[in-house]
Structure formats: C-alpha cells, structure tokens
C-alpha cells in the first residue's frame, strides 16, 4: 500500500492556519505530551517525517583527525527526510538524527523552557506513550545521518511514535529556522 492512499495532513494555507496548528501544541500546557504524538496504532513499515524509530546504532562521523569513527550509541532516532521521498522508488536514502536523552530528567522549570522551543539547534521530544524510560529527549539537528530507506522495517528500525499534526508543523518551523538563521559572518 502506498502511503498517500492512506491519508495526508491538511494543507496550511496562511499565517492563521499556521498559528492555529502551533498554538494547539505550544500552548497545550499539561496536555502537551498527549497532543504531541498520534494516539492510534501505527501503520508499520512506512516511515514518515518526524517519526521516532527505535534503532540501536552508533553515530557515524568524521573525527577531528579526519578518520571515520563511530561515536556515541543511540537507541532512538527521528526521521527528518521528507515523507514524500519515502514513496519514491528512485530515492534510496533518507535522513535521521539521533535522540539524545536528557539526564538527569529536567525539572518543571526547565521543561517550560524546552516546551517553548526558543532554542534552535535541537528539537525537544517529550516521552511517548509506550516509552519504557519515559525520558525527555532532544533531536540533534547537528548530527544528521543517512539511512537506507529499506532499513525502515519492523525487524530493523521499528517505528515507535508518530507526531501529531501540530507537532509536525512545529518540527518544520524549527528545521526552517535552524537552517535559515543569520550566520553572523558580517556582524
């Protein structure tokens, strides 16, 4: 089954729509976490942008010595690659970023800041319903990794949570903001 036969997000046409989508999540207060993730059953095997995948792997990167190294190990990753590319046979790869667990768990004061999304190099991910650790995590925009799309199958990279519409819109804005912010080179 192809993803786009199963439904799609409604379009966001203007600023008012965007504001509504964001207010639903950023101003959710105590219901923030409940509104962040879809509550129903996930359709397995087809990753969407923003999905949380369980996939124990080290982070591949080029070290300060120019060597290819495997750095810290992560259990969970977020899909940043575009959902529509998942549906295209000619696109072999997607992009994921590791989810870094915040330890010790943030206090209520710090949670308020995390839920404000006023920082820009990471994306805050609250605990999802079936998360055994009930941990607070950060999607690390600075550590993107290429993954073969065929790895998104239940026996390899299991999808464990999917964003709600408001959280997905928030992720988009944070990505745009992360890439487009002033680089300060001419300050």
């Amino acid at each position: 089954m192809r993803l786009f036969e199963t439904g799609r997000w409604p379009a966001i046409w203007d600023k008012a729509d965007l504001d509504r989508a964001l207010q639903g999540i950023v101003e959710a207060g105590p219901e923030f976490e409940a509104k962040f993730f879809q509550q129903g059953e996930l359709r397995g095997g087809f990753a969407c942008q923003g999905d949380i995948v369980e996939f124990r792997s080290m982070l591949p990167l080029i070290s300060e010595d120019g060597e290819i190294v495997a750095a810290d190990e992560y259990e969970h990753w977020m899909v940043l690659g575009n959902t529509c590319d998942m549906d295209r046979d000619e696109v072999e790869h997607s992009t994921i970023v590791p989810l870094e667990v915040i330890q010790p768990a943030p206090t209520e004061d710090k949670l308020l800041i995390l839920r404000s999304y006023a920082f820009y190099r990471q994306f805050y991910v609250p605990p999802w319903r079936d998360d055994e650790q009930q941990a607070h995590r950060m999607a690390m925009f600075v550590n993107p990794v290429t993954i073969e799309k065929k790895a998104f199958r239940d026996d390899c990279a299991r999808i464990v949570a999917r964003l709600e519409f408001g959280a997905w819109a928030l992720l988009h804005l944070c990505l745009v903001r992360y890439l487009a912010r002033d680089d300060g080179r001419h300050d």
Binding site: L3, A11, I12, L18, N82, C84, H172, L173, V176
Partner: peptide, 14 residues
C-alpha cells in the same frame, strides 16, 4: 515531482 507536505511551500509564500 509533487510534494505531499505543503507547509514549507506555504510558509515560503507567507
């Protein structure tokens, strides 16, 4: 090519 994720385009227009 078509995209199913219209937000960036609308945002860009905005």
């Amino acid at each position: 090519l078509r995209s199913e994720t219209s937000l960036p385009e609308r945002l860009a227009t905005y």
